[in-house]
Design a protein around this nucleic acid. Sequence first.
DNA 1: GTCTATAAGGAGATAGAC
DNA 2: GTCTATCTCCTTATAGAC
Lengths: 215, 215
Amino acid sequence: MSAVPEPMDATAAPRTRPVRGAAGERRPVYDAASLLAVSVAEFNARGYDATSMEDLSRAAGITKSSFYHHVRGKEELLRAALARALDGLFGILEESQAQNGPALTRLQHIIGRQVEVLTSELPYVTLLLRVRGNTETERWALARRRAFDASIASLVAEAVADGEVSAEIEPWLAARLLSGTVNSIIEWYRPGRPGADQLPAQVVWMVREGIIPPA
Amino acid sequence: MSAVPEPMDATAAPRTRPVRGAAGERRPVYDAASLLAVSVAEFNARGYDATSMEDLSRAAGITKSSFYHHVRGKEELLRAALARALDGLFGILEESQAQNGPALTRLQHIIGRQVEVLTSELPYVTLLLRVRGNTETERWALARRRAFDASIASLVAEAVADGEVSAEIEPWLAARLLSGTVNSIIEWYRPGRPGADQLPAQVVWMVREGIIPPA
DNA sequence: GTCTATAAGGAGATAGAC
DNA sequence: GTCTATCTCCTTATAGAC
């Protein structure tokens, strides 16, 4: 895997102070985290490549030059966003290493947590899942994402070997469809949705039982 | 839905004749269908916005100007590709209108056919599923795609109402996860894969029964 | 911190010779 | 049908005044 420079920390303390106009009207807060959030929203709306630095600065309410005062460049914004998404996902794997028990139980837990991360870090994960591999940064993110998927796949294989998961389908296919199902949430989930707290359990149920009613 | 001009027919007879060098070395065949195929492959490799007309012409083995002799512009290529994908998907719905029987049976048939179209028209459907809505053409494709998904969703709702499909999850959620599962095939399926003819049945099995082994 | 102005290069697309 | 040359606009990014 290629080395990638240190990511900007999107959760760090603000680099700059909030600015308010003399009349008290709201102006955007220009710290690293908020500019990243604004940028990622734009990237997701139009696609990374179709979004210009002009678009980003306009969304932030400042000129392009001022925007460059806070941000090194377009690709650094992308890298910071992808790092945040990947940190969320790999955090799940770290948690699960502390657990033992049947593979299926661990798998279900991971799926539920994955849904939680997808929804809580929605813009960042959305960007990650759309990366194509055009730059070194994107290829780094793709490689890390593949490593995550491989972990899930080996857990599925383990559950199949233990007889806890159906062997009707090859394990690698089950794992891919499983990841596809979970990841597809980004296509329609939007924050503030009522009953979002039940979504992880519902997704777990769906991949466990399918759409046919239990006998 | 917005009106969109007539799509170029990617399956029409070649507009131009194959060209061979004097020494007999192979040169690309420059008809509308093959240039579209080459272009769509490039779009999928890098993303539509990140792919330049220079990239396309180089992939076709001619200069950009020569490429423009065969093709009106970048967006027309996109539109032709999206139209082909949508024609494949809506063809499934037309077939299914001729059928009657339980909603679940029709749903399973549609899912299987959808997998077949995804794999047989892989590059075109891949492009369709990544459209963001930046231009009128893209918004037209998105609207048509939404209409397709809505048809599936209403069939799921019908099956739930008939008691054929589990009511444990809300019908709209089941429909979305179902579409997400099927569409995720584009992320990993590659033509020539052995056992590809069994894929539709395996996907249908997975969404029916889930990953838990039948009792 | 923000701005105007601008550099340097790449994009989509066309003109016109052969 | 293919090419070289070019147009025009947009892109990322920087210089330097305030």
